[in-house]
Simulated scan of single mutants.
Amino acid sequence: MPILVRSASLTKYSEIARQAGIDPVRALREAGLDLSCLTTPDLRIPEASLARVFEVSLAGGAGRAESRTLGARIGEAWRLSDFGSLSLLLQHQPTLREALARVEPYRHLLSDSVSVQLEEIDDTAVLHVALVTARPDPGPEIVELTVGAVLSLVRAMLGPQYAPRAVHFAHAAPERLEVHRRFFGPRIEFDSEFDGIVLARQDLDRASPLADASLARYAQELLDLQPRYGEASLTDNVRRAIHLLLPRGAGTIEPVSERLGLSPRTLQRQLEQRGERFSSLVNEVRASLAARYLAQPRHSVSDISDRLGFSEPSAFSRWFSVEFGQPPSRWRAVNFGAGEERLGLDRH
């Protein structure tokens, strides 16, 4: 079953692409998408097709540096109303914390790909943004667009000029940073350990002047009347939770079941009823993340082993050899045309 997302980002894309010297009609046709996606924000389209639009745009842009800002520019243009039917409910929440809590239950109305996890440490709050895709790497433009959309929600609740403590991206920095600094702010960390936004913890509970409890109840009643045919399965939700939690050392069944509001035993039982096992899903996500990390030269094999929860690199290497048919360093060299010595990788 394909991973589906709303076409809202493409309604923003058209004008921004033209400004960058890109033909949006050609890009959509090459991606196999109907041109109605440029004007209709609530269509459900394959996430892989959206990624293809960006690939075509980068290949056909008047200048790569300009094209490389597409995701950030779309994020900059994002408004609360672009969350579609969920926007009224979000607008009338009393705090940012409450607004974030409303996103996950209705995420099926937005995207099968995106999950946002709130982590609180002392006086700091971190919004971890994870994308589950059928590709090893979601691509920097898609990541920047998604983090930008989350930042637009933060600013809708805290004020349009709100500056987060930092914005983090796991990918490398683009050639030019003017657009990124203008939108995300001056504190941008690239080549980071995660994708997401760092805030002051107290900002989560700052009262919103727009909150209206009656309108929030009305919006929720309307949302609950909508058909739920697009809602993700339990298995998909478990995969998303593992994608978020595994790189943070919390990929066991206890934290995953807690995120889903279930006990570990109930989660195990419900997965077994669907012919699934939690350990198999962890293995599946590990394989996806391993390929994603190995595509990024800055990650050593030891680093990847640790991120994926292995006790030592040799254990990771044995597991990887079973899954992919060769050791991780050799797989990386074959698939990305770089030798171990030049990349400075560990030998395992």
Rank of each mutant, 00 (worst) to 15 (best):
R265D: 13
R135A: 15
A130P: 00
A20G: 03
P94A: 14
E15V: 14
A216Q: 15
H348G: 00
I304G: 00
I22F: 11
A27P: 03
E175S: 14
A241S: 15
H243G: 00
L262F: 07
M1S: 09
L345F: 07
G325M: 04
P174R: 05
P164Q: 13
T124G: 01
Q117F: 11
R68Q: 15
Q220F: 00
P164W: 04
L345T: 01
V282H: 07
L43E: 06
D112L: 03
R107L: 13
A287S: 13
G21R: 09
D195C: 11
A99P: 10
R18N: 05
L204N: 08
R29N: 14
L177E: 12
G61N: 04
C37E: 08
Q296C: 05
S81I: 09
I22W: 10
A170D: 04
G60L: 06
I304N: 00
S305R: 02
F320C: 01
I197F: 02
F83R: 05
P41G: 06
L223D: 12
L234V: 04
E341L: 14
I304Y: 00
C37D: 13
T133F: 05
R107F: 00
A200M: 06
A163G: 07
L38C: 12
H171A: 07
E254W: 01
R18G: 05
N237K: 14
E284C: 02
Y106W: 14
S208L: 08
R217T: 13
E254F: 04
R155C: 06
T235D: 10
A149M: 12
E55G: 02
R6I: 08
R181M: 13
S192W: 10
E119Y: 05
S279M: 01
Q91K: 15
P2Y: 07
V56Y: 07
A77T: 04
A333C: 13
S111R: 02
E312F: 07
V285R: 01
R165A: 09
V154G: 08
P46C: 02
C37I: 10
S192I: 10
V114D: 03
Q296L: 12
C37R: 08
A20Y: 03
R318G: 05
G185Q: 09
H128W: 13
